[in-house]
Design a binder for these strands. Structure first.
Lengths: 269, 269
DNA sequence: GACAGTTGTATCAAATAATGATACGCCGCA
DNA sequence: TGCGGCGTATCATTATTTGATACAACTGTC
C-alpha cells in the first residue's frame, strides 16, 4: 500500500504511528494479532513495528500475556505538549483560581480542526471518568465550548462550519439538528457565551466562554460543567457566568496565537 | 549508524520517535535545523521524518516560521493512556474527593523504572507551572512519593535502589546524600508514609502514602503538596495524613497489577 | 490425552523504500 | 552586494524493510 509515494514521506514511521493511534478507550491493551487486525498491517510488519516501539519505550509489554499497552512515555509527550502550548501557561493559574471559587469542574478546551480537545481539566465533583481526563476530542458543534468559539468566527466560516462539520449523538438529548445548532451559536454571538444541557451526559449543564485571541477570533474556551439537578439555567447565569467570563477575559489579552503583538520576554514561562 | 541491526527493529520508526522525544520544557518548538542538531540526524533524514510526522498530524508546523510543535495528537495519546491504566480509573474519583476534602493539591504518582511519573494532578492552589501538569518525571529517590513506594519493596531491592538509582539537586535543600535518603525511606518503612520538605521547591512540603498492590508491593502513591509556610509537619500529620492514607488504602485492595487475585469480572472500568 | 486452531517468535532472499550528498531559492545581515 | 544560514527538492545507490514461511508455545475441545 503506497499511502503517499513521496520521497519526503517515510512509510515505516507512519505505520508505526498507526500502531500508537490504534489505542483508545475501547482498545486499552492489545495482542500482536489484534494490533495487526486493527491497523490492517500484516503480522510481520506489526511484529517488527511493535517490537521497535517496545524497545524504544513507547509500548509496555506484559511479560505474561504478551499484550501491548501504552507506556508512561505517552504522558511525557503530554508534558512536552503543555510546555509548548503558550495558552496553557497563561491559563492554568487562572483556571485553578476559578475552580476554587466555583467549587465546580472547570475545563480548558481548544479548537482542533472541526473538533475541540480538552487541554486541561480541573474536576471538582465525581463524575464520568471520560470527563476527568485530558485529551478528549469531541465534535465542536456538539459542545458548548465549540459553539462559544465558533461564535467568534466570521459569518461565512461560521455558516460553513454549521453546515459541514460533524455532529454525533451522545445522549438521547444530544442536538443533531443543524438548524437548532445554528440557533445556539447565533445566540452565543449576541450573548458572548454558550450554555447547553444534556448534550454529552444526561443531567449535565455546560457553560462556555470564548478566549478571544488574535483578530477577535477564539481558538480556545473556558468551560464549566455542573449538575442539571442542582443548577437551573438562571442560577448558572447568575452565579457562574460572571466569574467564568472574567477568567476567559483575563486570559485573552495576553494571548497571541502566533506572533501577534510585542515580541517581548515571555511571561508564560 | 546501526543502533540495533536486528531484523525485528525498524530504524526509521525509532528515528521518528527521536524527533518526538526531542521536545521538552526547554525545547517547546524547533526549526528543522534545531531538530536535526538535537537528534543528531542529518538534515535530509530530519526533513523526511518531520514531514511525515507533520502529514500524520503528530507535529504542527507554523506556516510562517516553519517551526515544528507538538500537536493535539499528543494529548490524545495521553487520553488513550488513561484508559489503559487500570489504576487511574480506580483512583480518580477518590482523588477528587480527597482534594475537595483537603482543599490542597493532590497527585497520583506511579513508579516508572527508577523515576516516578505524575499520572494525575489535581491542583488546588496556584503554584509553579510544572507542578500542575501531568507526565512529569522525577528521580524516585528525590520525592516523597518515590520513597513511600520504595518503602514497600523487599529489603534487598530497596538497598539496591538507594545505592544505585539517580538523584538530582533541584533546590539548595534537596537531599543528595544517600545515607540521609536511606533514613527517610527506613522511616517510611515503619511509618507507612513519607514526608519531606523543600526537595523539589523551596517552602514546599510533600506527603505521600503508598498504594499497596500485588504482594504488598506499591507501584503507585497518593501524594499531597502543601506550602511549608502555613503547614507545620505536625499539622500535616494531624490533618492531612489520615485522609491521605484512607484514600490510598481505598484504592489499594481493588488494584491488581497484572493478574493477581480473582480473575473475575474487572471492576476497574 | 491427542488435535486443531490460534498466537507469538524467528529466519531469509528479494526488491522496495529509505538514504544522504547535492543543488536551488529565499531571507536577513553586514 | 555578497555571505551565511535555512527550508526545500531531486536522484542514484544500496542498505533496510518486507512478507512469506516455518517453528514453537499455548488453549480449549472432543
Amino acid at each position: 500500500m503506497k499511502t503517499k509515494q513521496n520521497t519526503l514521506y517515510v512509510g515505516s514511521l507512519a505505520k508505526g504511528l498507526q500502531l500508537l493511534k490504534a489505542f483508545d478507550e475501547s482498545h486499552t491493551d492489545m495482542s500482536l494479532s489484534e494490533l495487526a487486525q486493527r491497523t490492517g498491517l500484516n503480522k510481520s510488519a506489526t511484529q517488527r513495528l511493535a517490537n521497535t516501539l517496545h524497545v524504544e519505550g513507547m509500548l509496555d509489554k506484559d511479560p505474561v500475556t504478551r499484550r501491548f499497552r501504552p507506556s508512561h512515555a505517552w504522558l511525557q509527550l503530554a508534558y512536552a505538549y503543555y510546555w509548548s502550548d503558550p495558552l496553557v501557561g497563561q491559563a492554568m493559574p487562572k483556571l485553578i483560581g476559578l475552580s476554587q471559587e466555583l467549587g465546580e469542574t472547570v475545563n480548558l478546551a481548544e479548537m482542533s480542526g472541526d473538533h475541540i480537545v480538552y487541554v486541561s481539566r480541573l474536576p471538582c465533583k465525581r463524575t464520568h471518568f471520560a470527563a476527568t481526563i485530558i485529551g478528549r476530542r469531541l465534535p465542536a458543534l456538539s459542545t458548548a465550548a465549540g459553539r462559544a468559539m465558533l461564535s467568534t468566527f466570521p459569518e461565512d466560516e461560521r455558516n460553513h462550519a454549521i453546515e459541514t462539520w460533524p455532529v454525533q449523538k451522545f445522549t438521547p438529548g444530544t442536538t443533531i439538528d443543524r438548524d437548532e445548532i445554528r440557533q445556539t451559536i447565533e445566540q452565543a454571538v449576541t450573548d458572548g457565551f454558550s450554555i447547553s444541557s444534556g448534550q454529552m451526559l444526561l443531567n449535565e449543564t455546560s457553560v462556555a466562554s470564548p478566549i478571544i485571541g488574535h483578530e477577535g477570533r477564539a481558538h480556545a474556551a473556558v468551560q464549566c460543567s455542573v449538575s442539571a439537578h442542582t443548577w437551573t439555567r438562571e442560577k448558572v447565569e447568575r452565579e457562574i457566568l460572571p466569574k467564568l467570563q472574567d477568567t476567559a477575559n483575563a486570559i485573552s489579552p495576553s494571548f497571541q496565537p502566533y506572533r501577534g503583538g510585542t515580541p517581548g520576554p515571555l511571561n508564560g514561562e
